[in-house]
Amino acid sequence: MIIERVLIFLIFITGFIGLIGVKNIIKKIIGLSLLNSSIVLLFILEASRIGDHAPILVGQEKNIVDPVPQALMLTAIVIGVCVTSLSLAMAVRLYKTTGSLDITIIKERIENES
């Protein structure tokens, strides 16, 4: 149980480094997606600690996993798709108007324009 948590934490930190330490906008968006995925994985892992079977009531398995975090993560995945699509559209817009994906160059060019 400890190794999964360490791996989820590594995914989280990787996403965070991508979000704050990289200058390319596309890599920042990939980092945002990684953050979202790590949170989803954490909730699914937590819910699976109290059971072994899928939460489908067809057999008579008594110890199903908790379905509430799975239903919540369904929402989180959809919101993650929304965030990714909107930020990718904004990245395309920024690239078309400034000609670069690097945030420092974008900032310079916007300041030169105004």
Partner: peptide, 23 residues
């Protein structure tokens, strides 16, 4: 992890909503 929501849904979800997929 608390188990009471799981237990409640295991007993009641099929009767209350008619779907055997609890999610």
């Amino acid at each position: 992890w608390p188990t009471f929501t799981r237990d409640y849904l295991f007993v009641n979800a099929l009767n209350e909503t008619g779907a055997s997929n609890t999610v």
